[in-house]
Design a protein around this nucleic acid. Structure first.
Length: 455
RNA sequence: GGCUAAGUGGCAGAGUGGUAAUGCAGCGGCCUGCAAAGCCGUCAACGCCGGUUCGAUUCCGACCUUAGCCUCCA
């Protein structure tokens, strides 16, 4: 089944048709590294990660680019606040970001460019735009001349002149039109800057993404897929199309996809509302598969309303999935023929990344899997396909600790001895003791199984 | 104010011109020393108003509501 994905540009689901024969390129707007990642950042990484896994299953070669923005005014502020140099701040939070994304089972992108490594390409891109007559220099700033680009507003559907009323816009003196945006701006001595034809300065927001794409793919290539949070549609992606189209003979990008934002109490997370949920905090109480499952529970284009329920549902569901997979199953089966076992889930996901339906599928599969080894193998591979661990993380961690296992099994045995003697009081004491050790028991068919408590 | 998206049972979400999948939760039962799990069964929904139609949740129009964007944002 071919992958069909909603295209923001055409407002339709469309098949992905790569510009090059069987090599697909995807660019996703990555983080600005100045603070701890929150669940919104996680969603913005997990959604393209699912797409990346699907693309890899269907195409010989996939270029997956996700940038690291390490030049930005917010970083400068954070550096001041934390009393660290800008380098320290960006390397610290880059590391944390990568670590957090790894923990959530996101595959690493094939390319992870930094803005600071792309400055010369940014400068040459800007020069090209100026040369083509689509940008102008004023007071040490370089500005994109939006009136010179006829397609402006196509992605977001905005006609800027018509939405002026009710909005106050400070038209900076160096702008010809309020719509124009900055490609390059001057830097003071104490802010990061690079020498350029327009003096010491740094790139404006927007140009870095375009430059990194062109740097990796080449100027006259069309990017196949570009993604990001839907709060980036305007102005960021709109501006990227404008400037990118002025650099190249080819269309800038064919397929745009945008994930919905995460809401907390039906409101967008924001520092001012104090409702930002950091991954670091979630990691304390939840396994990473549970967090991932929670973030995949709503369709990617819908807003995801985060509540206590969200994580509780995910936890219950994950527990149920794990309960039908024995450790032996999970360890025994190699991933060799994973593809044949994941056809169903791939087909489900191929329809615009329908992760809720994929999760339903796992849930249905777990029913038959209980008494069906093949279904269990399918379940394991399907879970792995969307990045869920088929083994309880704690179990994996302690699996090699035979001493602890012997101790647990001795207690289980002891409890069953009490049970045979109908001494349920003492049996319950032992069960409580195991519970306090984080062990959960289940009696079924005369057999007692134990498991580490999830989370 | 403008733009975009969306409104289906408690939640997540399919779907169709002839009254609506599935999963989770709930409820009832079986099982069980208890608990848990499992199994069986079950309740419950198409924002509002018009129009087209034999008939609309599905098509058209108005309205209402929600969220996002228009300022940094994933």
């Amino acid at each position: 089944m071919t992958i069909r994905l909603y295209n923001t540009l055409t407002r339709k689901k469309e098949a992905i048709k790569p510009f090059l024969d069987d090599s697909v390129s995807m660019y996703v707007c990555g983080p600005t590294v100045y603070g701890h990642p929150h669940i919104g950042n996680a969603r913005a990484a997990i959604v393209p990660d699912i797409l990346y896994r699907l693309l890899m299953a269907k195409h010989d070669s996939v270029k997956y680019i996700r940038n690291i923005t390490d030049v930005d005014d917010k970083i400068i502020d954070a550096a001041k606040k934390e009393g660290l140099s800008i380098d320290k701040i960006t390397s610290k939070y880059t590391k944390i970001y990568r670590d957090n994304m790894d923990r959530l089972s996101n595959l690493r992108p094939t390319h992870e460019p930094k803005v600071t490594d792309t400055i010369s390409k940014i400068i040459s891109s800007i020069e090209k735009i100026i040369k083509n007559g689509n940008a102008y220099v004023k007071d040490s700033h370089v500005l994109f001349d939006t009136d010179s680009f006829k397609g402006y507003g196509e992605l977001s559907g905005k006609k800027l002149e018509e939405m002026l009323d009710g909005v106050r816009i400070d038209n900076a003196s160096y702008k010809k039109s309020f719509k124009d945006f900055i490609l390059w701006k001057p830097s003071e001595d104490d802010t990061p800057g690079w020498e350029s034809p327009w003096g010491k300065g740094r790139p404006g927001w927007h140009i870095e993404c375009t430059s990194m794409i062109k740097d990796i793919l080449g100027d006259d290539t069309t990017l196949d897929i570009h993604g990001g949070g839907n709060d980036l549609i305007f102005p960021h992606h709109e501006n990227e199309i404008a400037q990118g189209s002025c650099i190249s003979k080819e269309k800038y990008c064919n397929h745009w996809f945008h994930n919905g934002i995460v809401l907390v109490n039906k409101k967008k997370m924001s520092k001012s509302l104090g409702n930002v949920i950091l991954l670091d905090d979630l990691f304390k109480d939840n396994s990473t598969s549970v967090i991932r499952l929670a973030l995949l529970s709503a369709h990617y284009r819908q807003p995801l309303n985060w509540s206590d329920q969200t994580i509780i549902y995910a936890r219950n569901l994950y527990k149920k999935l794990l309960s039908v997979i024995s450790m032996v199953d999970a360890k025994a089966r190699p991933l060799d023929d994973a593809d044949s076992h994941t056809k169903e889930i791939q087909d489900i996901l191929s329809d615009d990344l329908n992760t809720p339906e994929a999760i339903n599928y796992l849930s249905r599969l777990s029913k038959t899997a209980r008494n069906d080894f093949e279904a269990r193998v399918k379940l394991i591979h399907s879970m792995k396909f969307i990045g869920l661990s088929p083994i309880n993380e704690k179990t994996v961690k302690i699996f090699s600790d035979t001493e602890e296992i012997e101790q647990i099994e001795a207690l289980v045995k002891k409890r069953n001895e009490y049970r045979i003697k109908k001494d349920f009081k003492n049996a319950d004491v032992v069960r409580d003791k195991l519970l306090s050790m984080g062990i959960e028991l289940e009696d079924s068919d005369g057999d007692t199984t134990w498991n580490y408590l999830q989370d």
